[in-house]
């Protein structure tokens, strides 16, 4: 029934092997710095809904400059971020993570896939 229609998750049609062969690329809009603990801090542009943006502008609450959000990564997240260079594929990054932290390879693949998905949703990376 229309109002309760379930949202179907789009199927990429890729197998896991094909997905892991994709190389993540950092977005040019992301600003990177380092925390005192040696971890990565990311400054990400935040998308504002056009209706809210228009309202905020009219009320003089926003001057139109891009809003940013800061995210601090933990040690593993920082290691993955530093490995994102547009050359190494997700599978390579997972293997690197598994080797460095003595993780199970399959679990490292899941962790990397989940993390890259989160970064992708925030617009911090793309895949090629």
């Amino acid at each position: 029934m229309f109002p309760f229609k379930s949202k179907k998750v789009p199927d990429s049609g890729l197998t896991r092997r094909q997905t892991l062969a994709l190389a993540p690329v950092r977005s040019r809009d992301v600003l990177e710095s380092e925390t005192a603990a040696g971890c990565v801090r990311l400054s990400l542009p935040v998308a504002v809904r056009p209706a809210l943006a228009g309202l905020a502008r009219r009320l003089g609450l926003w001057d139109g400059r891009a809003l940013r959000k800061t995210v601090e990564l933990d040690a593993m997240g920082s290691a993955v971020w530093r490995a994102i260079d547009g050359v190494h594929c997700a599978g390579d990054i997972a293997a690197m993570l598994a080797g460095r932290y003595n993780l199970d390879p399959a679990e490292a693949e899941l962790a990397v896939a989940q993390f890259l998905r989160q970064l992708g949703r925030r617009g911090a990376i793309g895949m090629e």
């Binding site: 933990d74 040690a75 593993m76 932290y101 003595n102 993780l103 199970d104 679990e107």
Partner: peptide, 10 residues
Amino acid sequence: LAPADVLLAR
């Protein structure tokens, strides 16, 4: 839980 070194560093 894993990796232990990351968890115990925090």
